[in-house]
C-alpha cells in the first residue's frame, strides 16, 4: 500500500518533469524533421524564454499567463531570427557545418546572456499560492497542475495546427520532401521559419514553467534539459511529433523513479543510459520507421 502510493507519487512527479522535456523535445524534433538539423542551441532558447518570463513578471509586474505569452512571442521571434541569421545562409551547406554553427549559436546565447543578465542564478518569483491537492495521500501541487494543464493545452493547439491547418499540412509536406513541397507552391523558407518560431515558443513556455517549478534560473540552465530533450526526441523517434511527447514523458518518469527509489545522483546517468540503449537497440526510436536514407 505504502509502496504503491510512492510509485504513484513518483509517477506524478515524473509526468510533470516529462511534460517539460516533451515541450522542449517537440521543438527539437520539428526542426530536425524539416531541415535535418539537431539544433543544439534549442536548450539555450529555452533558457532565454525563462529569462524573458522572469523579467516580464519581476520588471513589468505581469501575472503568470500574460508573462507566458510575452515570453512565448518574444522567444518565437528570437528563434526565427537565429534561423534567418545563422542557419538560412547554410541551407545548401553540408549538414556538419550547420551542426557546428548550432553549437556556436548555443555558446553565443549562453555567454551573451551572462553578459547581459549576469551569471548569478536568479530566484524566480512565486507566481501562485502554494496549493496542493491531496488525493488519499497522493500529493499534486499547484505547480505540477500548472505544468500539466499548460502542456496539455499546448499539445492540443499544436495537434490542431499540424493536422488541420494549411500551414500544418505544408509543414508535414516540407518535412517529408522539401523539394516536392515547393512544387506544390509551398514556400519552404517560410515554413522553416514558422517551424523555428513554433518550436522556440514551446521551449519558452517550458523555460518559464521550470522557473516556476524549481524557483531558480541561470544562463547555463538550458544545457542539461536541452540534452535531455534531445534524448527524449531520439527515444520517441526523431522527427516524429507524438514520439517527442512520449519520449519526454518516459524520460521524466524514469528519472523520477531513479531519484525516488535509488538516488538522485543517478538521475542524469539514467537519462543518458537510455540514449545509449536506444542507439544500440532501436536507433530509429519507439515510433521510428525503418526508412532508408534517400539519395
Amino acid at each position: 500500500m505504502e509502496m504503491g502510493q510512492q510509485v504513484l507519487q513518483q509517477l506524478v512527479n515524473g509526468i510533470s518533469l516529462g511534460s517539460i522535456y516533451a515541450l522542449i523535445a517537440l521543438g527539437y524534433t520539428m526542426i530536425y524533421g524539416i531541415i535535418k538539423l539537431i539544433n543544439f542551441a534549442h536548450g539555450d532558447i529555452y533558457m532565454v524564454g525563462a529569462y524573458i518570463g522572469f523579467f516580464a513578471i519581476t520588471q513589468a509586474g505581469l501575472s503568470i499567463v500574460p508573462a507566458l505569452l510575452v515570453s512565448l512571442v518574444t522567444t518565437a521571434m528570437l528563434g526565427m531570427l537565429v534561423e534567418k541569421l545563422a542557419y538560412k545562409p547554410l541551407r545548401h551547406a553540408p549538414r556538419l557545418s550547420v551542426l557546428i554553427t548550432a553549437i556556436g549559436v548555443s555558446f553565443f546565447l549562453e555567454y551573451a546572456s551572462m553578459y547581459f543578465v549576469s551569471p548569478t542564478p536568479r530566484t524566480f518569483p512565486a507566481v501562485m499560492d502554494s496549493v496542493a491537492i491531496n488525493i488519499g495521500g497522493l500529493v499534486i501541487n499547484g505547480q505540477q497542475l500548472l505544468i500539466l494543464g499548460i502542456t496539455f493545452v499546448l499539445m492540443v493547439i499544436l495537434t490542431y495546427i499540424v493536422k488541420f491547418t494549411n500551414t500544418g499540412k505544408a509543414m508535414r509536406a516540407a518535412s517529408f520532401d522539401t523539394e516536392t513541397a515547393q512544387l506544390m507552391g509551398i514556400n519552404s523558407d517560410r515554413i522553416i521559419s514558422i517551424t523555428f518560431g513554433i518550436g522556440s515558443a514551446l521551449a519558452a513556455v517550458a523555460g518559464v514553467l521550470v522557473g516556476i517549478y524549481y524557483n531558480s534560473i541561470d544562463p547555463l540552465m538550458g544545457i542539461m534539459p536541452g540534452l535531455k530533450a534531445f534524448v527524449a526526441a531520439v527515444l520517441g523517434g526523431i522527427g516524429i511529433l507524438p514520439g517527442a511527447v512520449v519520449g519526454g514523458i518516459i524520460l521524466g518518469v524514469v528519472e523520477a523513479f531513479v531519484s525516488g527509489f535509488i538516488s538522485s545522483t543517478f538521475r542524469d546517468a539514467a537519462a543518458f543510459a537510455i540514449l545509449i540503449i536506444v542507439l544500440l537497440v532501436r536507433p530509429t526510436g519507439i515510433f521510428g520507421k525503418n526508412t532508408k536514407e534517400k539519395v
Binding site: 499540412k169 509536406a173 520532401d177 523539394e179 516536392t180 513541397a181 512544387l183
Partner: peptide
C-alpha cells in the same frame, strides 16, 4: 514523389 505518410485527400489538398 507523393507524400506517402499523408492521406490521398491531403495530397490533393496540397
Amino acid at each position: 514523389r507523393i507524400f506517402a505518410d499523408m492521406t490521398v485527400m491531403e495530397n490533393l489538398d496540397l
